[in-house]
Amino acid sequence: MNASPPYLGFGLGLRTCYFEDIIQTQPDIDWLEIISENYFVDGGKPWHYLDQIKERYPIAMHGVSMSIGSTGEINFDYLSKLKRTIHRVDPKWISDHLCFSSLGDFNSHDLLPLPYTEEALAHLCERLRIVQDFLERPVILENVSSYLTYHQSQMTEWDFLCALHRQSGCQFLLDINNVYVSARNHGFDAMDYLNAIPKQAVAQVHLAGHSDFGSHIVDTHDQPVCDAVWQLFQCYAQSMPPVNTMIERDDNFPPFETLMAELNQARTLAPRSWRSNG
């Protein structure tokens, strides 16, 4: 299950505060990404608006609770809810995070990185196979920002992703901001990471903001995309075929026009070939 999603262009994360703006103004957005778990309910405000919005815009689904790297039992109750939502939304693709967040009854409510070992790689490949077989859809995995490393790790994060792609066919949602955050926190070169990932393994790109505390930075997704991340995206994009790219904002929401300005900046910085989705 490694079929690439279609190239749609430039999108935004769909958040409740922007429902009316999108319906009323029908802005120049190529696609929208929803948080999967927000639509596990049968009705209510989210579905009221999404049913209208998805008539005009293609939708992608992005989950935050799969915890695919956990060593606990796979949560088939969660997967059943996700599968029902997939059938109702009919998204262009689905994604979640390459991490673990829960173990048994414990939920950290955070996206925790895995140790980059051969054992973790085999474990992740097997769980990904089971999840994809159940959903009957490929799952794209996003790199998370990190603030710690494991003594047990046998390879770099990017080597781990490359090995996962080779062994499973898994494609990735590359969050450029998360790469930058981890590079700053751990002292590696962000371009070394990005250039190591096979081009055919990249299905989507996220651009977002963070909070800089000097000695470390935290992936908060509540700030504008900073100049350093824009520069990283522009440099990376020059060597890439067109990749679905979106602005992600999860808190401290600006006026919709401000978010659209960021989206248009992404369009401007990307190669010309990216700006045609036809």
Score class of each variant (00 low, 15 high):
M1R: 09
N2L: 10
F19H: 02
D21F: 01
D28A: 11
D30F: 09
D30L: 09
I34W: 03
I35D: 00
I35Y: 07
I35G: 02
S36Q: 04
V41P: 03
V41Y: 13
V41Q: 14
H48D: 12
H48C: 03
Y49H: 02
H62Q: 10
S65N: 07
I68K: 12
S70H: 10
F76V: 12
K81W: 01
R84W: 08
V89P: 03
W93I: 06
D96P: 05
F100W: 15
S101F: 01
L103D: 01
L103T: 11
H109C: 15
L112R: 04
P113I: 13
L114E: 08
E119C: 06
E119L: 08
C125P: 07
R127C: 11
Q132T: 13
R137L: 06
R137A: 05
V144Q: 06
S145I: 02
Y147E: 12
T149R: 00
S153K: 15
Q154D: 03
E157M: 08
E157T: 04
D159H: 08
R166Y: 10
G169A: 11
G169N: 07
Q171E: 01
N177K: 05
N178A: 00
N178W: 04
V179I: 12
A183N: 02
R184V: 13
Y193M: 04
K199G: 14
K199W: 09
A203G: 01
H206S: 10
V218F: 14
T220F: 05
D222S: 15
P224D: 05
A228W: 07
Q234R: 08
M240P: 02
M246D: 03
M246R: 06
I247N: 03
E248N: 05
R249I: 03
F253Y: 14
E257D: 10
